[in-house]
Amino acid sequence: MVKAVPNTLRVFASLFVALTLVFILAPLVVVAGVSVSESQFIAFPPSGFSLRWFAAIFDSNAYVQALITSLKLATLVTVTATIVGAGAAIALHRRRLPGTSLLAGLFLSPLILPSIIFAIGLLMLWSATIGPVSFWALWIGHMVIALPYVIRTTLAVLADSDPFLEEAARTMGASRWQRILYVVLPQCVPGLAAGAFFAFNISFDEAVVALFLRTPDLVTLPIQIYNQLEFSPDPTVAAVSTLMMGLTVFLIATLDRFLGIQRFVGT
């Protein structure tokens, strides 16, 4: 049999993919490695095995506070962004509002416009109109970043649904609210669930808006890590980072388990 791709090339391609994966995953593996090291210095490969740095997290008030802040923030952002995003996605999907495509562009623009630009604007606007930045400023900021993800995943599942469901419901006597409640929202559920996963993950991991809007009392987990990295990193940072990675892996696995990740990765 003639092979379309020469064997040497196959070997070379496999090697290339493997090396690229090593490169992409290296920093994650290293952080996980450091977190279980016995040594009190940050070193890779790790020496020995110990979970004491994970225990150390919970002895540190700063980390515990940051963890609580981040969990509170991410949960609130997830709930609100999902609700707001659901409404926006349904309206965009129906294409009945004038300027729908313009509106869609506006809703998705936080995805591509670098967050540093809007973060600094938010800091200035909040300070000028409301006063010192607070948890609520951070909540608003993360909503803006998380919203496009919810809208995008929800629009994707709505695009796959039967376009005549709503009309069919009308001919069967369903009123406006009944159509939203019994027909449209149930169609949105997989997209909203995926969007909620993304929203939580983004809010929990985000470092730029949180950095601009931080105050001594308002430090999220990524910012706490950032602070430690700027000054005196010890393996506790690695342990916290590993926890965060664990959460991400858990979220991806859950997303895949319940919804199938293929639907939301764009290919």
């Binding site: 290293v30 890779f44 991991d205 690695a238 980072s241």
Partner: peptide, 17 residues
């Protein structure tokens, strides 16, 4: 997976490496 991991964590990994 790395895309969804906090950029702070990934940068930390490079600092070690």
């Amino acid at each position: 997976l790395p895309l969804m991991t906090s950029v702070v964590v990934r940068t930390f990994g490079w600092m070690v490496l």
